[in-house]
Write a protein that binds this DNA or RNA. Structure first.
Length: 439
DNA sequence: TTTTGAGTTGTTCGA
DNA sequence: GTCGAACAACTCAAA
């Protein structure tokens, strides 16, 4: 029996592997392998969202989704029993290793499609080398183009096979996004109706929640970017959103060409960057992770991450900048924390988003960027709406004091004083960068 | 091969 | 408050 192996493509629509598996003849076994290498490091938010996606998929398969726990090479071999296995290609470092092992074990693995409009590795510069700068990549990417979404497949006959139960969703603090393909379609429709027209202006505003909120669905493949790209026109908002989708593809391409870059700085000269270790650094990291730095917008973001498994991108950048530039903690540590808690945790986007902020990645900026937590707060959350939503200690504090509560005559009860002096740490960050640049 | 223009998302300083 | 310049020099990508 042909097997349809779901990995990060938890949908039935516009899924080339579904078509191929159906065309192979015979009842198709829809399989998901609960792989400890991926399940283990995931925090409860990410686990809960994945469980939600699996339940939704199971429902649209009339309860026939086969979930098996264990090592993929062993589990897939057992289920396939010599038959062909169809799956979308995974270009991440772990996915490539896993699939190599699967093929080596003799399984007839047929990779069809990928989670990207253009698979990593396909776009190269005139010299045939991978792009290292976003803008030329994005031009080539748009020129390259992508296929239209697939029509619905003729009805697929799904096999009935025993599996392990879908694990219970861990209990989580607050509300996670609704999971699954139908929820993704609703979210996309909502974004199209309410968010896309003003996207260019609103996407940077955490207070009005102006981003698309589609990242968790793209991460788990409840949506394919092709489905979004096919509907995008030429307006400013649509162009800006298309560019955001292109960033996702660019970073997947960068990680594909340098799989090591998820663990160490992409830029060789930045690998010797001086970072802080030890008890003081650990305490600062803990304060950052808990949302107790005393900088309201940073804390609001870190608390949103904990409770919702998601953070607005503008605030992600600021929180990352704060950890790296103000606390001098290695970016990989912050990136791991994000990976654990984000429901949209994507290794490529997360890694290279962090590296962009840390100044260790493909970005060729002529100067060192150090985000100012107060300036960012005033510009992107002017009334403090977003801050007060997550930092309840400041619920009675209005703008402008909400941006710098240490200036109040009386410190708000329960809210910490700033753990560092931003101006001093900024100079320290610049000093460390200058040291690297001199080598 | 050499040259040229450009590089997501920033901050500070001084007019 | 608003605005433009300065902030390293370098690397990339295409002409």
């Amino acid at each position: 029996m042909p097997v349809l192996w779901f990995r990060r493509d938890l949908r039935l629509r516009d899924n080339p592997a579904v078509h191929e598996a159906a065309a192979a003849g015979g009842d198709v076994v829809p399989l998901f392998v609960l792989d400890d290498a991926l399940w283990g490091p995931a925090g409860s938010n990410r686990r809960a969202f994945l469980v939600g996606c699996l339940r939704a998929l199971d429902e649209s398969l009339d309860g026939r989704l086969v979930v098996r726990r264990g090592d993929p090479a062993r589990v897939v071999a057992e289920v396939a029993d010599g038959g062909p296995v169809f799956a979308a290609e995974d270009f991440g470092p772990y996915g490539v290793r896993r699939d190599d092992a699967v093929v080596e074990s003799g399984i007839d693995l047929r990779l069809v499609g990928s989670p990207y409009a253009v698979p990593p590795g396909e776009i190269t510069s005139g010299a045939g080398a991978p792009y290292k700068v976003f803008t030329p990549f994005s031009k080539a990417w748009r020129q390259h183009g992508w296929p239209a979404p697939l029509p619905a497949p003729r009805s697929v006959r799904w096999a009935e096979l025993d599996g392990d139960p879908i694990p219970d969703a861990p209990s989580v603090g607050a509300e996670l996004p609704a999971a699954g393909e139908e929820a993704a379609r609703r979210a996309a429709r909502r974004f199209w109706e309410h968010g896309l027209a003003d996207y260019a202006e609103r996407r940077d505003r955490p207070d009005v929640d102006g981003s698309s909120r589609l990242s968790p669905y793209l991460r788990w493949g409840c949506l394919h970017p092709r489905q979004l790209l096919a509907k995008l026109g030429r307006s400013t908002g649509e162009s800006v959103f298309r560019t955001e989708l292109c960033w996702r593809e660019f970073y997947a391409d960068v990680l594909f060409h340098d799989p090591e870059s998820s663990r160490r700085s992409w830029h060789p000269s930045m690998r010797g960057m001086q970072v802080d270790h030890g008890r003081r650094a650990d305490a600062r990291f803990d304060a950052w992770a808990a949302g107790e730095t005393g900088f309201p917008l940073v804390d609001a973001g870190m608390r949103q991450l904990r409770t919702e498994g998601w953070m607005h991108n503008r605030v992600r950048m600021l929180a990352a900048s704060f950890l790296v530039k103000d606390l001098h903690v290695d970016w990989t540590r912050g990136a791991r924390h994000f990976m654990e808690h984000l429901v949209d945790a994507d290794l490529a986007s997360n890694t290279h988003g962090w590296q962009w902020v840390a100044g260790t990645g493909t970005d060729a900026s002529p100067f060192v960027r150090v985000f100012n937590p107060v300036t960012q707060s005033k510009r992107f959350d002017p009334d403090g709406t977003y801050i007060r939503r997550y930092v309840t200690e400041l619920s009675g504090v209005a703008a402008p004091a909400v941006h710098e509560p240490w200036k109040l005559a009386e410190r708000p009860a329960g809210y910490p004083a700033p753990i560092v002096d931003h101006d001093a740490e900024r100079l320290e960050a610049l000093r460390r960068f200058a040291e690297r640049a001199g080598r």
